[in-house]
Each structure stands twice: as C-alpha cells, then as structure tokens.
Design a protein around this nucleic acid. Sequence first.
DNA 1: ATAAAGATACCGTCTGGACGGTTTGTCAAG
DNA 2: CTTGACAAACCGTCCAGACGGTATCTTTAT
Lengths: 186, 186
Amino acid sequence: MANAYQRKKQPERVRQQLLEVAARLSLEQGIGAVTLDAVSQAAGVSKGGLLHHFPNKLALLDGLFDELVARFDRAIEEAMEGDDVERGRFTRAYLTVCFAFDAEAEGKGWQVLTIALLAEPHLKARWRDWVARRADEFAATDSSPNCLLARFAADGVWLADLLDSHELDAPTRALLLQNLKALSRQ
Amino acid sequence: MANAYQRKKQPERVRQQLLEVAARLSLEQGIGAVTLDAVSQAAGVSKGGLLHHFPNKLALLDGLFDELVARFDRAIEEAMEGDDVERGRFTRAYLTVCFAFDAEAEGKGWQVLTIALLAEPHLKARWRDWVARRADEFAATDSSPNCLLARFAADGVWLADLLDSHELDAPTRALLLQNLKALSRQ
DNA sequence: ATAAAGATACCGTCTGGACGGTTTGTCAAG
DNA sequence: CTTGACAAACCGTCCAGACGGTATCTTTAT
C-alpha cells in the first residue's frame, strides 16, 4: 500500500477486486458499509484509484449490477442447455437458478447487495428492463399463466432466502421445485 | 415553521405525519432520501421535534415497520373474516392482501420503504419473527405444500409490484389470484 | 532500435457538505 | 409550576468527489 506506484499494473484485476470487495462488504456489514473509503481500502487501492475505475459511486453500483446480471444470465443459459423440452424451458431454468441461489457460496455474497440495488431507483429501472427483455424473448415458450405463476413462486422463494425467513427443509424445498417445474410443462 | 411554538399541540398527529412523510420520501426518492433533516423539514417539524418523537433514526424506521405490520395484520384479519372454509384460510387472506397491495394508494406509499426495511438487519430479523409466528399460528390449516407454494407466489407478485416489473394486465392478474386460491383449498 | 510523446493507471490530500445526534431554550397545557 | 412538545443552534464524524501529482504502459516518429 505504502508505495504501490511501481507494482505491476493490472487494471482488470483491480477492477474485479473492487467489485468483489464491494459485494463482500455489503454482505457482511450491510449496504451502509459500502463507502468509497471502505471499498478502496479493503481492496488495497487508494480512493483515487477506485474513482479512476468507477467515476462515481453510482458507477460502482452499476458495475456490481452488471456483474450480477451477467452471472445470472450465464447460470440461466447453462440451465437451459440441459433441457430439450421447448415449452417452459426458460421458466425451468429460472426456477433452477433461483432455487440454487442460496446454496452456492457465490450467491450468498450477492444477496444483500441485490436488495440494496433494488432500492436504488436507477437500478430498479435496469432490472425492469431485464425482465421485459426476457419476457419478450421467451414469449413464445414461457408466457403461459402456469409459467408465470411458477416464476412468481421462484421469486418468492428467492426473497425468502434473502430474508432468511421460512427456513424450508431440503425435501420440502425439493418437492416445491419439482411441482413448479411440472407446472411449467403443462 | 418559523413560529410554530404557538400552534396547537397535537403530538399524535405530528408523529403520524412524520411516519407518512418518511414513507413518501422513501417512495419518491429512494431510501437514501430518508434523512432526519429531510423528513423533519418535509413534515413541517424541526429536527429536534422529530427526535423528540423518535429518539434516533432506527426508532423512526422501527416505527415505520410497526405501522406497516399493523396495517398488514389488520388487512389479513379483515380478509379472513369473509372466508368460512378453514383449510388455507390464512393463505387466501395473504393472497388477497398481497395482490391488493399495489392498487390501494396507501400501499404504494409503503412499498419502497419495505425494501429498505428489509435491507436493515434489525428489521429483517423482526420480519422473520413475524413470518415464524404466523406460520406457527396457522400450522394446522395452512402448512400444506400447496399453500406454501401459493404464498411464495404471492410474495413474488408483491415483489414484482414493488419493482414495477412484469406489468400484468388486470385479467391475467385476476386469473392468477384465482388459481392460487384454488390451490389453497386442495 | 530507440527515444520522445502521450495515454493510462494509479496515489495521497483536501474540502465542502450532509447527516445523526446533543444541548439548550421556549411555549403551552394541565 | 411542572411536564411535555416542540424550536434552533450547534458538534463531530463521515463521506463523495476534486485535484494535482507520479509511475508505468503504448504508440509514434525517427
């Protein structure tokens, strides 16, 4: 830290580090702990360095959002590949990802952050766009009332995970997922 | 404002006003806008006045939470009265309230706030308690997998309202509600 | 090949303002 | 005349962002 001028320059790595640290901070200490000072310090970068990569705080949050969505998209795409029934395929992938999101260690790191993002009007709008785009993209295969219902339920489960309410035991959870997937096929 | 000493003293009214203003601010400008200064000013009260009613900011948020839960409870109770089928009665009331929550002007005012509350660990825990208590209270009539599913879906719809995503048209929405209620009776 | 000329990736400090909270004072009601 | 309901001024802290600098990369001109 003291003299970090001459260390190897690795902008992409530093950028990534900043995002990770921001996510971790929000998880461990709430969104209030995500300050430019805290993030930069925990990432071993000066505040000026942070502001070089992200010109302001909103840009940092935007970056987090991008990362989050990209991850989500990748997970969904992956889940869709192993499914050869057209009808409701997207919905099933959505279900899979939402239900898995609490288990994976990575997911945990993004959850608290997510809520914070949705509290920010700007990011709320961006999420809205994402939903609209997807709904449009899969209108042909996933717009049935049952699919809609299933996805809403997935959101509910995701929310419950986020809040640590409900505490489902594993078999109940598995059964629920199964039922919802069945719905998506009808 | 300038000379508010001699205005009629109406503590309960002022307290209510403060809560309403805080809710409205969070709705219109995000949780970040809910500061002691902003709330007190918008409520036509000095900051000292605010802090007289709520000794600190957390107390203010707690107050909002209390109000929110009380309203929710009342709405649910009301919805349960008109339902004479025991099985899934709570779930149907829960559905009714969640689905109605976007329509009523009142509900709108509390939505964004809610998310913010859930970002606060302390309030998150309180919500968790609420869920646990209710789940326990209605274990005999509303613990079937289908009821659980229905309530999760309700949460999803509520979340969608909160985020203005999804934009359901009225008939689809009504149909969804109907389907979920049917589930709760099985 | 190399050196000059930027461009990019940082560092360290400073500042203006916001924000939560305290304190002291004032008025009105009981 | 005491207590509750406020007002108004103030304080310490924190924080976002600006700024001016420095070191390392890349490109270009020679």
